[in-house]
Design a protein around this nucleic acid. Structure first.
Lengths: 225, 225
DNA sequence: GCATTAATTAATGCATACGTAAAAAAGTGC
DNA sequence: GCACTTTTTTACGTATGCATTAATTAATGC
């Protein structure tokens, strides 16, 4: 036997992962309806695990089960995005403050520093996809350092929605040079053990991002529908 | 036919509600395990809707599905409670700020005022249960006025956990007289349209509550297990 | 031709059945 | 009596079947 094949992943788990990918990649587009039986066939399993996966994803706000109408992929409106950023702003700001108060060593902050470097390289190369990926990594690591499992979960769910909107916004927004400066500021505050600064700078960063994104969505009448 | 019986509630919906009640009432105690088939029999339905309900409740942090061990009712530790209050503090503070910035009329703030009155009466009568109920109503209404569906959902989930801990803490904590003063302060700030004050006062209120509750749990070595 | 009703179709919500793998129990050798 | 193996039991994960009811289509009356 091979001691590498650790876990026999359940079909329901696989359904969650694959549905997520189909949603994020846009193959299941916002606003579209899909019968449970269709999805089951598509994923090569019976309705049961697909339905269970759909219930989970519904509770995470990615889709909606509507009796007889099928599974509806939820669109993300400008209003939704404003709400999402409001939550992110509050919870990540706390994470930044806590991280700064934790007295992390330079070594422990290495991952965070790397993400910033990646973002700066990406901006220099004008590679928006790479920037988005590094930005995700930065925020994820920040929340991890802030240390609160519930905040990690919630922020993770909200970030999923931001990722979906990014498919639309990433290429019409300006190059995120300001954003990189903000990140550097947050990092410095954490490294120097300045919780209040970390909170304040990160909050301003997220509020600015929110205004920019929501502004774009409203200006272009984008409902992601 | 009777036009009052609106919706034929689904078994899964009923399972969610009844399991929640069993958990909150302590009939399913923290840390205990229960087979899906047991719960199904108890609720008078098949395993399918019970299992679906359990998956939902798992995603809300009330229980955990452990293969072959059954459904485990999650205990709430002091650490959990600290995390929960941290989230509540951040998100409710934003709600208070937004409510104060919204320019609500005295009429629209009526419900909030009533809850405060109820709390004051309850304290005067030393009726802790009544106080807890009014306190719930106050916080729920505050978040409703703050106006963000995502925050409402998240705060609702966290409040569920607080309710569970309250079964233990409500009767060993001091009479919540300070708490009532805080509520009055938050209300005044909202009524007078002072967002910064509303935020600040509410934050202090929640931080104090957190310290008190977590302190109690740690002091008494209560794990709610 | 249009509105209303009846018949048909189809998708769900739930019950049930079953293979699989983990856990428990029984058996075996020493 | 104890460690180790084998058997049995059990609970889950998933597939399948079916009654119910919403949605759609056909039919009927005017």
């Amino acid at each position: 036997m091979n001691e590498l094949d650790h876990k026999p992943i359940s079909n329901m788990q696989r359904a969650i992962g694959e549905l997520r990918e189909l949603i994020f990649s846009g193959q299941l587009s916002p606003g579209s309806d899909h019968l449970e039986s269709e999805l089951a066939e598509r994923l090569g399993m019976s309705r049961t695990p697909v339905r269970e996966a759909a219930l989970i994803l519904e509770s995470q706000g990615l889709l909606e089960l509507r009796p007889r109408k099928g599974v509806r992929i939820l669109p993300v409106s400008a209003t939704d995005m404003r709400e999402i950023y409001d939550v992110l702003t509050e919870l990540e700001s706390l994470a930044a403050e806590r991280a700064a108060a934790s007295g992390y060593s330079a070594h422990e902050l290495n991952q965070l520093a790397l993400s910033i470097q990646d973002m700066e390289n990406a901006v220099a190369a004008e590679d928006r996809e790479a920037w988005a990926q590094a930005d995700d990594a930065f925020h994820r690591e920040l929340v991890r350092l802030g240390g609160n499992t519930r905040i990690q979960n919630i922020v993770g769910m909200m970030s999923d929605q931001v990722r979906r909107a990014r498919a639309v916004t990433l290429f019409i927004r300006p190059m995120p040079t300001q954003s990189n400066e903000d990140h550097r500021g947050v990092f410095d505050a954490i490294r120097d053990g300045q919780p209040a600064d970390a909170r304040r700078i990160h909050r301003a960063h997220r509020e600015q991002a929110r205004n920019m994104i929501v502004g774009l969505l409203e200006k272009h009448h984008l409902q992601l529908l």
